[in-house]
């Protein structure tokens, strides 16, 4: 029969074991996620720098894009909506990607849209009455590819014209969501790990304080100051 002392310490020991298991898995989560997301982190970090420096000569892609233009005949596109008709035309022309509509619809019996995917943009202008279309393709170099990988989402925030219509766009968007969730988890797990290092608390408070202060000055400080 356990002594009164043993009875008191049992729940504590169990709690302590659970806490220890939590801290071990928190640490594992941190480096497992970090290793799994490593390549994606590098891609988005480095392309983020490129996007902030559009004047860097070596990363120019628009002037060196390869353009091809062709005239195509087509059979009457099936479908009720413009999107269905555009997708039927894409099928006939062998095009795959996300449909993007111009802000204004062309007059008369015409259908104009872009088909985009990372590294490529294709403009389609179809004359539905004459059953003829011009298809102009812009193929980017590797810098253009990584640039568009960073920004590719199918639909911009507050876009009221377009909807995500290519399944791979949705997969890409979900993977970017997953990367963002992964980064949030890594930040949270790092706070827990740091908190357990008593000798590093003071230095950590300084580093985190500097980060919060400098970041917060942009997020809320600029508005207060101006």
């Amino acid at each position: 029969m356990p002594s009164p002392v043993d009875r008191l310490s049992l729940p504590d020991a169990s709690r302590s074991r659970r806490a220890e298991a939590f801290f071990i898995w928190n640490r594992r989560l941190h480096y497992y996620l970090g290793l799994y997301l490593l390549l994606a982190c590098w891609l988005f970090a480095l392309t983020g720098i490129l996007l902030n420096h559009p004047k860097w000569e070596f990363a120019q892609f628009w002037p060196s894009r390869v353009q091809t233009r062709s005239e195509r005949a087509f059979t009457a596109p099936e479908g009720v909506t413009d999107l269905e008709r555009a997708q039927h035309l894409m099928q006939q022309f062998g095009l795959v990607g996300e449909v993007q509509w111009p802000t204004t619809r062309p007059a008369g019996e015409a259908l104009a849209f872009q088909v985009i995917r990372p590294g490529r943009a294709i403009e389609v202008k179809a004359d539905l009455a004459a059953r003829r279309a011009t298809v102009q393709q812009h193929a980017y170099n590797v810098w253009g590819l990584v640039h568009t990988l960073h920004t590719f989402g199918g639909v911009r925030a507050n876009d009221r014209v377009n909807v995500r219509d290519w399944p791979l766009t949705t997969v890409w968007v979900l993977s970017m969501d997953a990367l963002a969730v992964g980064l949030l988890l890594m930040v949270c797990s790092s706070y827990i790990m740091w908190y357990r290092l008593k000798s590093k608390r003071r230095g950590g408070v300084v580093a985190l304080g500097l980060g919060v202060g400098s970041c917060g000055s942009f997020v809320v400080g600029v508005r207060w100051l101006t």
């Binding site: 590093k200 985190l208 400098s214």
Partner: peptide, 11 residues
């Protein structure tokens, strides 16, 4: 540790 903590709000 310290650089990670500094950039964490930006992340």
């Amino acid at each position: 540790l310290y650089i990670g903590l500094f950039i964490s709000p930006f992340i």
